[in-house]
Amino acid sequence: MAKEFRSGRKGITGGLEGPERELLIKLFQDVITTLEPDTPEDEDPLASLVGISEDSSVPEDPALARLLPQASDDDEEAAEFRRLTERSVREAKIGHLRMAAMDCESPKLLLDHEHSMAFASALNDVRLVLATRLGIESEEDAQRVASYTDWSQAQDVESYMSLVYQFVSWLQDSLVEAMLSDLD
């Protein structure tokens, strides 16, 4: 079983077992795959260099649309914002997810400020993707998912995914509480 994150002099430490680390690495990689843009071959290389994307439509994948939400209720405004900023948001997220996946390679987690922020936001992105797959739109949906409490209940994709979601939620909360205690 994973141990709670603790804040210490050298940073935030966490204890994850081998299979838990493997699971997280897999989840981080899945989200990276979801986020990697399909680059059209005829894309303007200069535009891509400065982080502007040609495509400013809402992503078709609902999980991706939750990771990269509309920034305005004015569609034109939202599209322009997406064109100018979406690529850099994707890249920042991918950077955090890669950093967190790398941290999970080591049996003992020791996270400085940058790594703990990356880890917390990577866990949040994993939860957003899992929540979309589980159809969590409201507090009631969240309660339904929370009704799975034990791994012996893992019988199908829905129950397994619900338990994974709860594990990742617990982990993120534990990490963020340690981060909050560092701010005080």
Partner: peptide, 21 residues
């Protein structure tokens, strides 16, 4: 968003905007 944890949202507001607890 029912996904976002209260602790995490608080942390982001503190760390990003430097708001008080």
């Amino acid at each position: 968003d029912p996904v976002n944890l209260m602790s995490y949202v608080t942390y982001v507001f503190r760390a990003h905007f430097h708001y008080s607890q």
